[in-house]
Design a binder for these strands. Structure first.
Lengths: 145, 145
DNA sequence: ATGTATGCAAAGAGTTTGCAAATGT
DNA sequence: ACATTTGCAAACTCTTTGCATACAT
């Protein structure tokens, strides 16, 4: 099992847009920078608030539209954790799962080859092939409370 | 790994309400029977439509309210699969995970002790204890398409 | 110059809630 | 009898969309 995340450069996401023939607008530049630099998993509203600080003209619609475009290109991932709104993170190529701290909402990433393999086996036994999957652990720090 | 579900009797859910000092109304009786007898994972609207057939006076609010009450008592589970609305199933005591057929939306239940154990290990390594978790495989039948 | 992206306001899906009337115990 | 539950409509949260204007290329 492994945990942690590598910071992707800001340019990665802009490159995705450029290569798709899409435009790098002032708003998108701001949003992408936040997404690439945050290292966390903000929802649309959080993104909007952070972006507004740098450019008060940005609208929530643009945040959503930008997320949609990036998601379609596979440049970001959209997660819908229990209950809450969708949260976004830059796709770092390697699939990983999430542990959500129930007190703080903080998200810890991890990856387990063994679990990945087991999932494949299970799907195969049931006669299926996996297209995608989602493993989320909701927990609290040990020795708290 | 194991798959399948056992049918719980209709009385189970009514008993939960009774023991909680809540009332068994005509509407609840209908909704609970559908839930217990369906063997599937209907969303609120599906539940509402099926219930309406037996009792056209039932409202969607009542479906939602009934789900909430049962969920609070741990008698049912609420799942929010990718994108869609919440879907409900009677809690059969033993935790299980889900494989969702992407073509049909059908849900197959399974349980893997090994995965359960691995999850615990991972959480422990990260310094957490698991409160709940969610493992969903999205796939398509092999040899199709 | 041209098509793309934007902000705004309105609409949409899913779910919850306030209220007065109905109903289970 | 009396608290609980109901149906209805309105409110709410999150997200998408139509449209006229602004902007990147």
């Amino acid at each position: 099992m492994s945990a942690g995340r590598e910071q992707g450069g800001t340019g990665d996401l802009e490159a995705v847009l450029k290569e798709a023939g899409l435009r790098i607008t002032r708003q998108r530049r701001v949003i992408l920078a936040i997404l690439a630099g945050g290292g966390d998993h903000p929802d649309a509203l959080a993104l909007f608030r952070r972006a507004s600080r740098q450019d008060p003209s940005i609208s929530l619609s643009t945040v959503y539209r930008t997320m949609k475009v990036l998601e379609e290109r596979g440049a970001i991932q959209r997660h819908t954790f229990e209950g809450g709104p969708a949260r976004f993170e830059p796709a770092d190529g390697v699939h990983h799962d999430h542990l959500i701290d129930l007190e703080t909402g903080k998200v810890i990433e991890f990856r387990s080859e063994r679990i990945e393999r087991l999932q494949e086996e299970i799907a195969a036994e049931l006669g299926y092939e996996i297209v995608s999957h989602r493993l989320e652990l909701y927990g609290r720090r040990r020795g708290e409370d």
